[in-house]
Amino acid sequence: MTTVTAVTPETKPVRSRRRPIQWGNIGVHAFLITMAVVWLFPVLWAFYIALRSFADTTLNGYVAFPSSLTLDNFFNAWTQGDLARNYIQTLAVVIPGVILTLLIASMVAYACSRYSWRFNRLILMVFVAGNLLPQQVIIVPLYQLYLALPLPKAVSDTGVLYDQLIGILLIHIVFQMGFCIFVLSNYMKTLSKELTEAGLVDGASVLRIWWSIILPLCRPALAALATLEFTFIYNDFFWALLLIEKGAKRPITSALNNLQGQFFTDFNLLAACSVLVAIPTIVVYVVLQKQFIRGLTLGSTKG
């Protein structure tokens, strides 16, 4: 609109010259709004149920105006789900998990994509092929392996890798590396050779080039991967289910299950707990959504 008035500053605005209604645009927006509502609805609905008491939803049904709203469910979920401990415990796996995965993956990606050596292509293939492997395929041998691998008592109260947070951490790193290496190696291939050659001429070692030249240049890719990996590892329930035996060592995703009884489940309480559990991923996503979206398309056009 401003450009239209700018072009004809002297003339009286003519009604007929107003921009015609763009039906296509309206259609797009209608579609986007519909999709946004469809996606937001379950989250908002869970929040609404969480604000109502069990008696209220039982007597009046889920689709009803509330007789009263309360935050009790959130407080109860916090204590009954033991969320404080759960958050800390989960972050103790997620944060080192993300950092170590990215560090190691960037090393492998660097070696495989920036250097030409006998098996660099093959190594890359093996890691990428690991992506195709469904986790479920290896659970039986992995379970036995964890039971059989001894650890010193100082590190592990069970004396083996099984039922240890470090065991969960390790398997996350292993399984997330394939994806990170794939993305990072593609990204590194796009960096100009001259930069590393300059480093080489200045006498930088391989490690130095990786740390001082490659990693800073990979920052967008690393940020995107960190966001994705945080979500992946935080949301994981599978490995903990398989490799952790003590209920108290399981991550936050299992807190939700703890609120369900043998028969009876207070769904309002469960909704409150779900909302609380989802908060960190939502926060990470909102704060880093630019990287998140970039992460989804990373590697898709490179090469």
Binding site: K246, G247, A248, G261
Partner: peptide
Amino acid sequence: NTVDHGTFQNQ
């Protein structure tokens, strides 16, 4: 050691 009902039974 408390494990949630469903998981305990499945495993």
